[in-house]
């Protein structure tokens, strides 16, 4: 691939991937124009390509021009602690609310919620169970994987995505839907931190779910470590 070394250098120096992609695209197009110019001047294809590449500038010059603009650095490179330490729990919570919000809105708008609690029909209970399963087993691993991919794309040190994964694992979001028997009022739908539930109910009631979530959340960390080992 043309400009592969330049691309790697820019990413390792913290330039955001979208700026790197755009720069390389325009450099490739510029190189085509320069090559065509050299061909029109009478050089054979090989000489034209060499002369055009030389006129475009060395990798160091091209990288230096980009690195001179600090604004092109990604937030992950500028403030990794904030991005990988603070953002993951916020993203996980936002994901949780996104999963549960339609159900809560639906329950409120259809009059299911009364002073006595939720009078939930079977379809609502099934939907709530599916939403909780998605919340419990998909959100934390997806967010962990997302931050692992973000760090990989930006060539950041493994320390940062591992921090994000650790924070998500410690937060241990647990989605709960509890309803009484059909026809009875009551029940609840919500998100809690596993640590808080552990504090409330003790180890016995939450450990299976917490352990499963922990394993799923840690999968991206294993992937990162395996990848690091494979590229050595």
């Amino acid at each position: 691939m043309q400009f592969e070394v330049l691309s790697e250098n820019l990413l390792k120096c913290g330039i955001a991937p979208q700026y790197v992609r755009r720069y390389l695209t325009e450099l490739s197009e510029h190189l085509e124009d320069l090559t065509a110019e050299q061909r029109a001047a009478g050089f054979d294809p090989e000489d034209a390509a060499i002369r055009a590449r030389a006129r475009l500038g060395s990798d160091d010059e091209l990288a230096g021009a980009m690195l001179a603009h600090k604004d092109f650095r990604s937030w992950a490179a500028r403030a990794p602690l904030a991005v990988f330490g603070l953002l993951p729990p916020l993203v996980a919570l936002l994901g949780g609310f996104t999963v549960l919000a339609p159900l809560v809105l639906c329950a409120r708008e259809t009059g299911m919620v009364t002073h006595g609690g939720i009078n939930a029909p079977q379809w609502f209970r099934t939907s709530a169970a599916i939403a909780c399963a998605v919340g419990n087993f998909a959100i934390a691993p997806s967010v962990a994987l997302g931050f692992a991919l973000l760090a990989t794309c930006q060539r950041l040190r493994d320390l940062w995505p591992l921090l994000a994964i650790l924070v998500i694992a410690l937060l241990d979001l647990q989605f709960q839907a509890t309803f009484p028997m059909l026809g009875h009022r009551g029940g609840a739908l919500g998100i809690n931190s596993g640590l808080w539930l552990f504090h409330l109910h003790g180890f016995s009631e939450t450990w299976r779910l917490a352990a499963t979530q922990l394993v799923l959340t840690l999968l991206p960390a294993f992937w990162l470590l395996h990848r690091r080992h494979a590229t050595r």
Binding site: Y23, H30, G57, E61, A65, H69, D71, F72
Partner: peptide
């Protein structure tokens, strides 16, 4: 101007 180095300047002006 350096052939390839105009782009960071153009991108910065656009930003």
């Amino acid at each position: 101007p350096g052939e390839g180095v105009v782009y960071p300047l153009l991108h910065a002006l656009e930003k």
